[in-house]
């Protein structure tokens, strides 16, 4: 079975969340690169949405205290108060760059400079990242540190993180990407233990990105030293 047919055969189970993690990643990579496949998946998703709605009863009520916990987890906290000294050290240049409009570009690299080991023909998501790299308005940010990585950020906020040299983590760990937006740090994605290429979406005035290693499932606020950081000049 060709790769496309194999992915297409998985779309029904994908709509029902009935795939393994590995299969799901494969399907999502294919969907990101193939609009026709995306259309088929959307049609099946609509049916799955009806099945989901059917599981909701009129008597369902939100538990007491749930909103308070969500509110606490989503209230923006300024970087200067939220992070430990390690993060402040990493992010101080980003905040300074935000404040000074004419700051130099610190780590934006020219297109094509990064050494890539990813097979762009085999990975549809990598192919989508390569296409984004060449789009007008895209910026490419090199994240430097213990785990070198690269972010390709398209003008519409779609981003791709490439970590071809990142060591695979254990099943109890995950890479987590953070976006520095104004004076806040927000999670841009929980990427799993061995992402290689991951897609995400961010909005707002992005000053840079940081990559951390967290416990599986990710965290609301990191206390870990970033394994890589890259800043965008303003």
């Amino acid at each position: 079975m060709s790769p496309d047919l194999e992915v297409e055969s998985l779309l029904g189970a994908y709509a029902l969340d009935a795939l393994s993690l590995e299969e799901r990643r494969r399907v999502e990579a294919a969907l990101a690169a193939d609009p026709e496949l995306r259309k088929i998946a959307d049609l099946l998703d609509e049916v799955a949405a009806e099945l989901a709605a059917a599981a909701v009863g009129d008597a369902d009520r939100t538990p007491a205290g749930l909103w308070a916990r969500i509110a606490a987890a989503t209230t923006p906290i300024p970087v200067s108060r939220a992070r430990g000294s390690l993060w402040r050290r990493w992010l101080a240049p980003a905040l300074a760059a935000t404040a000074v409009a004419a700051a130099a570009v610190l780590a934006v690299v020219a297109v094509g400079q990064h050494t890539r080991l990813i097979d762009f023909e085999e990975s549809p998501l990598a192919a989508a990242a390569a296409a984004a790299r060449n789009q007008q308005g895209s910026v490419v940010v090199a994240l430097t540190g213990r785990v070198p990585a690269e972010v390709i950020l398209a003008a519409d906020g779609t981003g791709y993180l490439l970590t071809p040299d990142a060591p695979a983590l254990t099943a109890e760990e995950t890479y987590q990407l953070w976006a520095i937006v104004g004076d806040r740090v927000i999670s841009a994605g929980i990427l799993g233990p061995d992402p290689e290429v991951a897609a995400f979406h961010v909005s707002g005035e992005i000053a840079g990105f940081a990559l951390t290693v967290e416990v599986a499932g990710g965290v609301v606020s990191s206390e870990q030293e970033p394994v890589a950081v890259g800043l965008i000049g303003t």
């Binding site: 969500i70 987890a73 989503t74 927000i186 841009a188 979406h201 961010v202 909005s203």
Partner: peptide, 13 residues
Amino acid sequence: AQEVFVRFWRDPG
């Protein structure tokens, strides 16, 4: 439920 709304807040895109 908490995770769903926190994720929506962090990544509404």
